[in-house]
Amino acid sequence: MKKLITLSILILIALAGSGQSNTFARLSFLFGDWQGTGSGFGNNQSTITASYKPVMDGSFIEVNHDSRFQPTSQNPNGEHHTDQGMISFDKARKVIVFRQFNNEGYINQYVLVDSLSTTDFLVFQTENIENFVPGGSARWTIEKKSDSEIETNFYVTFPGRDAACFGTNKLSKQ
């Protein structure tokens, strides 16, 4: 009887541990390396690389974005944007959380909005932004166009104003 109880406990522990990776099943189409172009963000054109990789035994997803913007008359040197982050699962709230750190000094904490997301369209809404206009918010969407193509859009809302799309990226899986 003692062996049966021990075996049952071990099975429950194994199942509980594997549940974490299943939490990210809806994001698995993102896993890998991506390249593409972007428009907006105050510039005409950018080239982008991105990667989404499960790390720490699948407990997190590491996110890296690198965008290089072409020079413009207002910015003859162009711009370089990088951000890094981790996607996790908050067990207490039962939500997917994305913490993003930008080279401009912004730190965004997004949650995946289940009521607005589908299998092929993910909506991440900020619940907190450090070093931004008080009362402002951001939304990041990812649309799966095919197994090898995605489109992301970044929206910003300033207090008392409607959300505006600041940029669109079209990426292909490498």
Rank of each mutant, 00 (worst) to 15 (best):
K3N: 06
L4Q: 09
T6F: 02
L10K: 06
A14K: 03
L15E: 02
A16D: 01
A16Y: 12
S18I: 14
S18H: 08
A25E: 15
R26A: 05
R26M: 09
L27K: 02
L30R: 03
F31S: 06
G32E: 07
Q35G: 10
G36S: 11
S39V: 14
S39T: 11
F41N: 11
G42R: 11
N43P: 02
N43D: 03
N44R: 13
Q45D: 03
Q45T: 15
S46L: 06
T47S: 03
S51A: 00
S51D: 05
Y52I: 01
P54V: 09
P54I: 04
P54L: 15
D57H: 14
D57L: 12
F60A: 13
F60Q: 10
D66F: 12
D66R: 12
F69P: 03
F69R: 01
Q70W: 01
Q70R: 00
P71A: 11
S73Q: 13
S73V: 14
Q74K: 12
E79P: 01
H80A: 11
H81A: 07
Q84R: 14
M86R: 12
S88F: 10
S88T: 14
R93T: 12
V95Y: 05
I96W: 05
F98E: 08
R99I: 12
Q100I: 05
N102L: 10
N102I: 02
N103V: 05
N103I: 00
E104Q: 06
G105W: 00
Y106C: 06
I107F: 08
I107L: 11
Y110F: 14
Y110H: 05
L112D: 10
D120T: 03
Q125I: 02
E130P: 00
N131W: 05
V133T: 14
G136K: 02
G136L: 01
W140L: 04
W140V: 04
I142M: 06
E143Y: 04
K145Q: 13
K145A: 11
D147C: 07
S148G: 04
I150A: 08
E151F: 08
T152V: 04
T152Y: 02
N153E: 07
N153S: 14
F158Y: 14
R161T: 12
D162R: 06
C165F: 08
C165T: 13
L171E: 04
L171F: 05
S172K: 15
S172I: 14
S172T: 15
K173E: 07
Q174L: 14
